[in-house]
Write a protein that binds this DNA or RNA. Structure first.
Lengths: 194, 194
DNA sequence: GTCTATATTTGGATAGAC
DNA sequence: GTCTATCCAAATATAGAC
């Protein structure tokens, strides 16, 4: 009946490595995420890393995809699809914002990863989940006559750009109040409205 | 009477190195900007780099500051300060956008540099010039009663975020029409308006 | 699966001739 | 000021014992 081994808990090692990479990149940049640093932060030997990932790059790409997926799930859970499109837009914007804010290291990691050469190898697959939320929102709002009929990628950029910028400010130490976040969501809505 | 030497033109070497670094980072990321690669791209020997800069980091920081400064000068030149604040906001937004678009490599370099650990060493000094444009604009619009009285850093983020995101799309191949850029400028204005 | 070496390559930076 | 040659440190990845 094999009781759980009290050692450094086998299956969790992979998660520890992913989390370690995210923390290091968020704190000190992609260049600081060496195999030695990641292994040390995860509390395992450097060679162990290669039992779980084919290469350092693979580890970082896996961390990126997992992070994006988690944010998508959190954001989707925070939205009530029965509201009017304008209200739904504001709520969705805040849900995505709060999902990222819940794990600032993950957000900072994502920003830095996305500007690295590795992002090209990732292919942009991770971003499509969030993109779909925006597409659905736009369609509903155009059908109801609330939103301007602008290209989906333009509206998507106008929607997501402030998320990223306000979060970057928070990482630098500027804490936004709830009222300020509401104001930002309203500003995004104003940009979409007819 | 010393005619200009036909060789690799002495004083221009520094500029060539800066330009080479920008091109490499824009194309292949910060990690690709090794001293060997920069020197090769500039057409000089690796050792020569250290006659012009104390270190590779110094070179990259110098490139960042120079790039930000050039964009600021271009953007400031493209604005007519006698217009009404709403019109001026749209014009300023487009001027900054076009200034970055005029040199996409410089923009991409800036994005990547800003997400690297070096950005902390730079200190954010380079960004203050553009920041001042936004501060002045906000003050004029609040005085005239056109804009909401929101914190300057919030408005600054709502103003600059779409610049960055739309340019990133362009780098990936999406060419915005002039009408779409006008729509984006109007959306930013809508976010600021009372 | 994990650890302790270690092989191999590449990076930043310097020395010294021209 | 520029080049060639070189030093030294650090990084990715592997080998082999436990």
């Amino acid at each position: 009946m094999n009781p759980p081994v009290p050692s450094t808990s086998g299956a969790a090692t992979r998660e520890r490595l992913l989390r370690a990479a995210i923390g290091i990149v968020a704190g000190d940049g992609m260049a600081a995420a060496t195999t030695a640093a990641i292994a040390a932060e995860a509390g395992v030997a450097e060679g162990t890393l290669y039992r779980h990932f084919e290469s350092k790059d693979d580890l970082l790409i896996a961390a990126y995809r997992q992070m994006k997926n988690e944010v998508f799930i959190m954001a989707a859970a925070g939205v009530d699809t029965s509201m009017s499109p304008p209200e739904r837009l504001k709520q969705t914007w805040k849900a995505i914002y709060l999902a990222y804010r819940a794990d600032r290291d993950a957000f900072a990691f994502g920003q830095r990863f996305a500007e690295s050469a590795l992002a090209q190898r990732e292919g942009g697959e991770a971003a499509r989940a969030i993109g779909k939320i925006v597409v659905d929102l736009r369609r509903a709002g155009i059908a109801s006559g609330d939103f301007k009929n602008l290209p989906v990628d333009l509206l998507g950029n106008l929607f997501l750009a402030p998320v990223s910028y306000l979060l970057k400010s928070e990482i630098k130490g500027r804490k936004w109040t709830d009222a300020e976040l509401d104001a930002a969501a309203s500003a995004v809505l104003a940009g979409w409205r007819k």
